[in-house]
Amino acid sequence: MSSPAALRRSPLALLVVLFLGLCFTGTAYAALQPSAAPGTSAATMSAEDVAAGKKLFLGNCATCHGTNGEGVDPIGPSLVGAGAAAVDFQVSTGRMPLPAPGVQADRNASQVKFSEEEISQLAAYVDSLGPGPDVPAAEYTDLQGADIAAGGAAYRTNCAMCHNSSGTGGALTRGKYAPTLMGVEPQHIYEAMLTGPQSMPVFNDNNLTPQDKENIIAFLKNMEEGGNSYGGAGIGSYGPAGDALFVWTLGIGTLIALAVWIGRKAA
């Protein structure tokens, strides 16, 4: 018989703890959120993954989020309960690890530092710290059977005030901004709604059901793939500002140039 301490250290024990923890998490989560999406559960991740994730975490994240993910005030929030979805969103969009402190972390595909496997390991580790939303199941991001029009209505009520009705983003207070949603992976949009990164509020599954979220994503993808391809160049979809810029520069400029031509004597 090994001592209890030795047992605690064994990988098996970790697995047992994790399993129990997950059972509790799952129950609690299911109890709190009856219609929660059955995601790619962290349960499929092995203890090795969690351990690997911890290693990555200590090397890349612990400075700001603490060695046990408990957070370092004021530079990094606690990640206990942040969940796998938050990790996947932050890390695979290149927002985290934050290259430099600023008002806001920017999406930057060139800054994604980890492979998909590493990200899922990191996610498994963070998920092991405390229960949180999981990475969404593929059925909610494949957009099969989604209702684009219903998605548009939900988008305009819940999202357009920050992200613009065309999904091109908008300004928030003090230099913060809601980023454009064009060209963003469906999974990341889903995760953002689920976890509320940075200034964005959380839209849990009681507020916007997984189907609602899928509808919203489908609406955005439609906007990206031709939903707005009518009538010519969209000048950034910034509404009257783009129109004004055009009409006051190229528009009136062309007409004035022609007027000058008309007023000039021929050679």
Partner: peptide, 21 residues
């Protein structure tokens, strides 16, 4: 009630950080 679905809201549904219209 949630706009636009019209579903009622339990106190437990309103998690911290979330916003309901």
């Amino acid at each position: 009630m949630i706009d636009p679905s019209g579903a009622p809201i339990r106190a437990a549904d309103v998690t911290q950080g979330s916003v309901f219209h």
